[in-house]
Structures are given as C-alpha cells and as structure tokens.
Write a protein that binds this DNA or RNA. Structure first.
Lengths: 206, 206
DNA sequence: TTAACATTGTGAATTTATTAACATTTTTCT
DNA sequence: AGAAAAATGTTAATAAATTCACAATGTTAA
C-alpha cells in the first residue's frame, strides 16, 4: 500500500466503529451506500476509501462486515498494541479515561497523571494516577507511546516538554493552547472552542 | 465578502485566541510568520486567510493585533450573541461547561440537561440543570440556538430528535455515534477515538 | 542617498480531496 | 434466455486547500 490520505485514515476509523455495531447486530454484509448514510458522506467516497486499502467487496452483496473490520484493523492498529497515558485527570481527563476503559485491546490507557497530590495514588476507572513529576519514569517503565493532554492551557507546554523528554511518539493535545513538539513526534490538536465557534458561524450564516 | 472556506473559519477562531493572548501581553502588532509559528502552519496561509477577510496589515509592522481581533469577531460572532445548551452533564459535559463558563460573551451556555433526576435542579458552574424531558420548553424560553451533546452514544439520536424538534439550529455531537439531522440544522461531529486512532496510525508508520 | 532587507498581498501552480461518469458484473424477473 | 436493475471498482473531472513565486513597498543601515 502506498500512501493513505489523512482523511481516509479518519474515515476508516469511523467505518470500523459503524461496522462493529453492524456486526453486533448480526449483519454479515453491508453496502457502500449504507456506510455512507451512517457517516453522512457519499457512497463513492466509501468505495474509494475501501479501494485504497485494497479490499474488494462482492458485487450485489456489498462488503463482508467481518473481513472489512479485520482489514481496517490491520491497517490502523499495531500488532503489539499501543500504551497510552492521560495527563490531567480533571473532568475531561476522566471523561476520556472512562470512554476508553475496557473498550479497545490495541490502544490501552495504562497510566494517568496529575499534579494534585490528593489524586496521586488513587485509581480512575481502574487506572492508577501518578504524580506528573514521575512522567519520565512511568512512561519508560510502562512503555507508553502516546500521551493525551487534558491539563489547563497554562501548563500545556511544560507538560508537553516532559512528555517529549520521556520519549513519547504521539501527542493528542486537548488544551486550548497550541504546543510545540520536535518534528519526530506526531501532534494532533483539538480545540472545543473552535468547533463551537464554527458551528456558531454556520448557524449565523444559515 | 463572498465565501469563506470552512478551514479558514476554523483558523480564524484559532488566530483570535492566539491574538487575545498576544494582546494581553501588550503586543500591538504581529507578523504573519509569528501567528504561523504559534499555529504550526505557514505564513502564507495566515496572510491568505487574512486577505480573505479583507484586512490589510502594515508593511514591515505586520498586523494590528487589536484591529484583527475585532475584525475576526465581526466575521465569526453574532452581534446579539448566541445561547448554547449542553445535554448530558457527565464528565465531558462538565468539562465543557467549565471551560466556557464566564469566558465568552457572544457564546454562552445558558442551560444544561440531564436525565438523572439527582442532577436536575442542581447548578453546574452556575448554570441550572434541567430535566431532558423539558428540552423543548427550555430551549424556546431561553432562546437557545446551539446544542452540545455529551450523552452516551445509545441516547444520541433520541436526544438529537428532541433538540431538532425544539428548533435548534446547530448541533455539536461529542457522542461516538453519528446522528441524523434535517439539512437545515448545522451538524458538527467529533469523536475522540478517531483522533486517538489517527495518532496511533501515524506513530506506527513513523 | 542608495542599497539591502524584510514584510505584505496576491496571481499562478500545485497538491489534496471529492464527485461524476460509466464499464462491469451479478442477480432477479419475465 | 434475455432484459432490467443494482451494486462495485476505477478513471477522469472538478473542487478545495495549500504553496510557490514574486511584485510592491516601507525600513534600516552604510
């Protein structure tokens, strides 16, 4: 496989979730237009994405749900699984930890961090909370590759630097402050205010 | 102004936030490449976005921070302000409510909803929690245009239908389930799992 | 004063993403 | 059997987003 576009990767992740639900309902096959309807996109887009990963469906029967789930897994998951940590166990950190706990096998949250001493040592959804000062040590011990940052904006860069120094390979930044990482670290930033302002803009302009 | 691209709208929101910080620090002017560095994009991109909104900077001095903040406000804010509600006051709902409380003047969260009777009547960051059954009534009374949905996935479509019926104009869906809305309602969906899986993919493929 | 420099603004080129169009194939119906 | 229908797979066309390239111009320094 040559090079999957970023957008295709995102959609594959979403297709998989939809497919898992379909599988749970007992569907064995699904048409491109059914996936498309669920995801609010076009059937052509779905077929193109699936073409890009080299899968081919059955004419008139559509795609085999089980096979497609497995193939998407081969593309986007790592065989060995990836360990993840959450830094900042406030409301957002807890929401995310909760969300993931026990769900994925390939991506597991194995540590949470906070600078609030009263939280350190407690468990959140079964995952132990460590002191942020121990980030370096814990990340190495637990072989953590990805960090999810849910601290206040003013701490964002400082925590980022700690994570980078600890050897993190990917960072998901949910703080409102953009941070800097060296180019070998993959960075994804998301900001709720931007999303809400965007909705407000399009509501305003009909 | 003709038609601003979606991506430009998102970036304008982000520029504004960066600019507000710069303004708070006492900066009166800023160069395109400074904004670009903060946002991890190119200076040309910044200049082009600013060109699109019809602002023009000063050669060799860059952009006037105050003026640019105000102009972006004119573009993306509504004069009268927009009222927003949060449905589902679990961890994520509280994180968002907390995040916004007291910050924006143009976008304000004026109600939160939950189906848990023990939460109804309580206040969350100063905002009263109503019963989901009263969504229709409260949305009309309080003139709410935008809903942020942070309920469990299995309730997503049901709540969406209630919001749509109540006359909501924009919906930000933070549940893991895509929902359907009539075409006159602006829908933005965001899913944390997809973001994390994307990071994992790019970490895996270096 | 004049040359070197740094910055904005923008048309053109390029790249990325989406959509259209349609050939192909299997199934169903008559 | 043959026609009609419904689906996939894919090339080509189009649209959207980004980057390049550079003219224009104010600023600084010699």
């Amino acid at each position: 496989m040559k090079h999957l576009p970023h957008k295709t990767i995102e959609r594959l992740s979403q297709y998989r979730r939809a497919l898992l639900l379909c599988h749970a309902k007992g569907m064995s096959h699904i048409y491109s237009h059914e996936i498309a309807t669920i995801q609010h996109i076009t059937a052509v887009q779905v077929r193109r994405d699936i073409m890009l990963i080299g899968y081919t469906g059955t004419l008139r029967k559509g795609y085999n749900v089980r096979e497609l789930i497995d193939l998407i897994g081969q593309i986007i998951d790592s065989d060995e699984g990836i360990n993840v940590c959450v830094v900042g166990i406030g409301n957002l950190g807890r929401a995310i930890t909760n969300y993931f706990s026990g769900k994925r096998t390939k991506l597991s949250i194995v540590a949470v961090f906070d600078n609030d001493k009263s939280k350190v040592g407690k468990k959140y959804h079964g995952i132990e909370c460590y002191n942020v000062e121990d980030i370096g040590k814990v990340i190495k011990e637990k072989n953590i590759d990805i960090g999810i940052m849910t601290v206040p904006g003013e701490d964002a860069q400082k925590i980022t630097d700690l994570l980078v120094k600890a050897g993190i390979k990917g960072l998901l930044n949910y703080t409102p402050k953009p941070v800097n990482v060296p180019k070998e670290v993959y960075l994804e930033e998301y900001d709720m205010i931007t999303s809400l302002e965007k909705v407000a803009f399009f509501v305003k302009t009909h």
